Computed example of a mutant assay.
Amino acid sequence: MNTVKHKIIEALTELGLTLPDAPKPGGSYVSVNVRGTVAYVAIQFPIQGDTYLYTGKFGKDLSIQDGYDAARLCALNTLAQIDKYIGFENILGLNHMDLYYQAAEGWDEGPLVANGASELFAYALDSAGIHSRAILGVQSLPRNFSVGITTSFTLIHSSI
């Protein structure tokens, strides 16, 4: 195991987490698309194995803590995609994250949900995990997932 991956696995272990197998795409697209020195990771949902977790709407079916945990799982799945298709040693850092969430009318705690992913990226990737983000409330998400994230990473080389 390379040194970069070892540090990330160690950080996840400190949090009581393990790097999962990368979820398969749910349609006709690729999980990671590389253009030049940027890798775009397709939307990741709170999926564990073949199980869909954290379905429903915040403020109705799910709590803020559920959202935090769901976003953290999305971030773990993102890291699994990077590990499988890019390799941690090939990334310079996380650029940006978009978080999409579905909620009951009037619920407005998206930033607290997004922190689940943002904090995991920052902890696992150290300074390479610091990023900008956008938080978007949507009417619905596929399979009634409560949250999903998309990300982009800068690569060290464009020949990945």
Rank of each mutant, 00 (worst) to 15 (best):
N2I: 05
N2V: 06
T3K: 09
T3W: 04
K5A: 12
K7C: 10
K7F: 08
K7H: 12
I9Y: 08
I9K: 07
I9F: 06
E10T: 14
A11W: 07
A11C: 06
L12M: 15
E14R: 15
T18F: 11
T18Q: 15
L19T: 15
P20K: 06
D21G: 10
D21W: 03
D21S: 14
A22I: 13
A22M: 12
P23I: 15
K24W: 14
G26R: 02
G27P: 08
Y29P: 09
V30R: 09
S31E: 06
S31T: 03
V32E: 06
V32K: 05
N33F: 09
N33H: 11
V34F: 08
R35M: 09
V38D: 02
A39R: 07
A42V: 05
I43K: 08
Q44N: 12
P46V: 03
I47W: 09
I47C: 05
Q48I: 10
D50C: 08
T51A: 13
T51W: 04
L53V: 08
L53K: 11
Y54C: 07
G56A: 12
K57M: 12
K60M: 10
D61N: 14
L62M: 04
S63M: 06
I64M: 05
Q65G: 00
D66R: 01
Y68A: 00
D69W: 09
L73C: 04
L76M: 13
N77G: 01
L79V: 13
A80H: 08
A80I: 13
Q81T: 08
I82P: 00
I82R: 02
I82A: 06
D83V: 04
D83I: 09
Y85G: 15
I86R: 11
E89F: 13
N90P: 13
L94M: 03
H96G: 03
H96M: 13
H96T: 04
M97Y: 04
L99W: 01
Y100I: 12
Y101Q: 00
Y101K: 03
Q102Y: 10
Q102D: 12
A103W: 00
A103G: 00
A104E: 10
G106N: 11
G106P: 07
G106Q: 09
E109Q: 11
E109I: 00
G110E: 08
P111K: 03
N115V: 05
A117L: 06
A117W: 03
E119F: 01
E119Y: 02
L120D: 00
F121W: 10
A124V: 05
S127N: 11
S132L: 03
A134T: 12
I135S: 02
L136F: 11
L136R: 08
G137T: 04
Q139Y: 11
S140L: 05
L141E: 04
L141Y: 01
L141Q: 02
P142K: 08
P142R: 09
N144E: 14
N144S: 10
F145R: 05
S146E: 09
S146R: 02
I149S: 06
T150K: 14
S152W: 04
S152Y: 03
S152N: 15
L155N: 15
I156Y: 00
I156S: 02
H157P: 03
S158E: 11
S158R: 06
S159D: 14
S159K: 15
I160K: 13
I160T: 14
I160Q: 14
